[in-house]
C-alpha cells in the first residue's frame, strides 16, 4: 500500500514536471520573434544522391592501354593501392578534383592491390571515400611492361597521377602525393584550351 502511494506520487511529480516543460516549450514556440532578429531565410537545396562506385573492374595490360585513351576530354588517371599510405591520404583531394571538374574531364583510378581485394578492401575504401570515379584493378604478369606503357619516366612508385589532354598526349604527371594547386593549374590549362 505504502509502495503504491510512493509510485503514485512519483507519477504525479513526473507528470507535473513534464507538463511544465511542454508548456514552457510551447510558450517559447508561440512567443513572437523580436523584429530586430528576423528569421533567416534558409534555402534548402536538395543534392542529388552522390554516385559512389560500387564495382571495380579488373584489367590487364591491354585493358590499361585502352583505359588511358581519352574519349574526347582530358583524362586524369590515378594509380594507387590500399596498402599505400600517401595514396589513401591524397584520395579526398582527388575526389574533390573529380567533383570540381565533373563533365569537363574524365577521371579513372587504377588500383594495384592484389586481385583478392577487388571485392573487399578496394571497393570498401572507394565507398568510404565517396569516390564516384570509374575504378579499375590492374592485374598483370609483367608489372614493368605495364609501367613502361604509361611513361618511361615512371619507375613504379605509388601514388602516380597522370593527366592526358584530349588527344592522348601527356600533359602532366606526378609520382608521389599530388600537389593540389599544381594539378589544378594543369587541369585549368587543359579545360580552358578545350573550351576555346
Amino acid at each position: 500500500m505504502k509502495k503504491n502511494l510512493i509510485g503514485a506520487f512519483r507519477v504525479l511529480v513526473c507528470g507535473v514536471l513534464s507538463g511544465s516543460l511542454l508548456a514552457a516549450g510551447a510558450a517559447a514556440q508561440t512567443k513572437p520573434r523580436p523584429k530586430t532578429s528576423p528569421k533567416p531565410k534558409t534555402k534548402i537545396i536538395k543534392l542529388p544522391p552522390r554516385e559512389v562506385v560500387s564495382e571495380v573492374t579488373q584489367i590487364d595490360e591491354a585493358g590499361l592501354r585502352a583505359a588511358v585513351k581519352p574519349n574526347g576530354k582530358p583524362l586524369l588517371v590515378n594509380f594507387w593501392a590500399t596498402w599505400c599510405d600517401p595514396c589513401r591520404e591524397e584520395f579526398p583531394d582527388l575526389v574533390k578534383i573529380d567533383a570540381d571538374y565533373k563533365g569537363r574531364i574524365d577521371f579513372i583510378t587504377v588500383s594495384l592491390d592484389d586481385l583478392a581485394e577487388i571485392n573487399r578492401d578496394v571497393p570498401k575504401f572507394l565507398a568510404a571515400m565517396n569516390a564516384p570515379m570509374r575504378a579499375y584493378l590492374l592485374k598483370v604478369e609483367d608489372e614493368g611492361a605495364a609501367i613502361a606503357a604509361i611513361t618511361k619516366d615512371w619507375q613504379g612508385g605509388l601514388p602516380f597521377t597522370i593527366l592526358y589532354n584530349e588527344k592522348g598526349e601527356i600533359a602532366y604527371f606526378r609520382q608521389g602525393k599530388i600537389k593540389i594547386d599544381v594539378l589544378r593549374g594543369e587541369l585549368d590549362k587543359l579545360v580552358t584550351t578545350a573550351s576555346k
Binding site: 594509380f79 608489372e143 609501367i147 605509388l158
Partner: peptide, 8 residues
C-alpha cells in the same frame, strides 16, 4: 620495374 612505394 615493379610497383612499390615512392621515396618520400
Amino acid at each position: 620495374l615493379a610497383f612499390g612505394c615512392s621515396i618520400k
